[in-house]
Design a protein around this nucleic acid. Structure first.
Lengths: 163, 163
DNA sequence: TATTGTTATACTCTATAACTATA
DNA sequence: TATAGTTATAGAGTATAACAATA
């Protein structure tokens, strides 16, 4: 059992989540000193990266884009605005909505943090054989582009049986 | 910039943590209904898997092995013991220490949960080209075998500069 | 009335500190 | 006194609910 040749790699392995979740925690911990040196929180960095892609028409839109609750980013936006890293102003056509954009200073700081983080990540990736590394990054890009429902929703009913 | 040929893939990419952490969250959410169907919590499942490898001589040892605080697993152990999924008894030679072992019922339940989880994961991995998939799983095994210090500690001082 | 943004509250998870029983 | 296990408390992070301004 387990060695059946059903077309591929039915090797024994640990659960994906058991490998991925702790790895994600360690990566966040590794990023932390770099973000600290830039005076950024994790959420602040995430917001700056999102706004680097282009301005946003509402805070709710931004929150959805980064997978956060709308109430969770308010303090972050306050701090970023006060430091001049983002602009925030009411939409003249609908004064309920706050428009958001990154400033030049914000873009510069974000790019610096990203460079430091990716430099550190490169040292980690250097431990991998080149072929594995390419496959890893490509697979990661593929999987992280999937929607949460695509990952969670696969065969919900039939897989939950106790065997 | 970024296209320098320094021996490899200096491609633009999102931060590893930004891809890995949400993926881990989605995977945990995907596991959740399977664990529910088995009456297991995430920590209960982790404990059963750890004890599947062999008995443990103390709760502290088990907690360290799974990266948990010793206070965090007590309720979990109580519940597993009450359902007859683990045995827990004082070491006769040092009655402060509780020895732990999985029962036959515990092993059966754990294997059933693991089968369901990995079946679901296989459906996700099936979306990847075979080569990427192999590299992904091998890289993941390599990286998750590293200690937290190995990942966090890489070049702590020099990487934290604001450039 | 519905929606954006905000504030206040409650809840969950985790870490810390205090306690017991054994040594 | 030191350690394993337990319980109680406090803290961080998040989600939920209520509120003010605008449409």
């Amino acid at each position: 059992m387990g060695r059946t040749s059903d077309g591929g790699d039915a090797e024994d392995r640990r659960d994906l989540a058991a490998m991925i979740v702790p790895l994600g925690g360690a990566l966040m911990q590794a990023e932390s000193p770099i973000l600290d040196a830039h005076g950024l929180t994790m959420w602040g960095y995430i917001v700056l990266q999102a706004l680097s892609e282009g301005p946003t028409r509402s805070q709710i839109g931004l929150a959805e884009a980064i997978g956060a609750d709308k109430t969770r980013i308010i303090g972050t936006l306050d701090a970023l605005q006060e430091r001049g890293l983002i602009d925030r102003w009411p939409d003249p056509e609908d004064r309920r909505i706050r428009q958001l954009a990154i400033t030049t200073a914000g873009r510069r700081l974000c790019e610096s943090a990203k460079a430091g983080i990716q430099r550190k990540e490169e040292m980690l990736l250097a431990r991998l054989p080149a072929a594995d590394r390419r496959g890893f990054l490509r697979a990661l890009a593929t999987l992280s582009a999937l929607s949460r429902e695509d990952i969670v929703g696969d065969l919900d009913a039939t897989q939950s049986q106790v065997g």
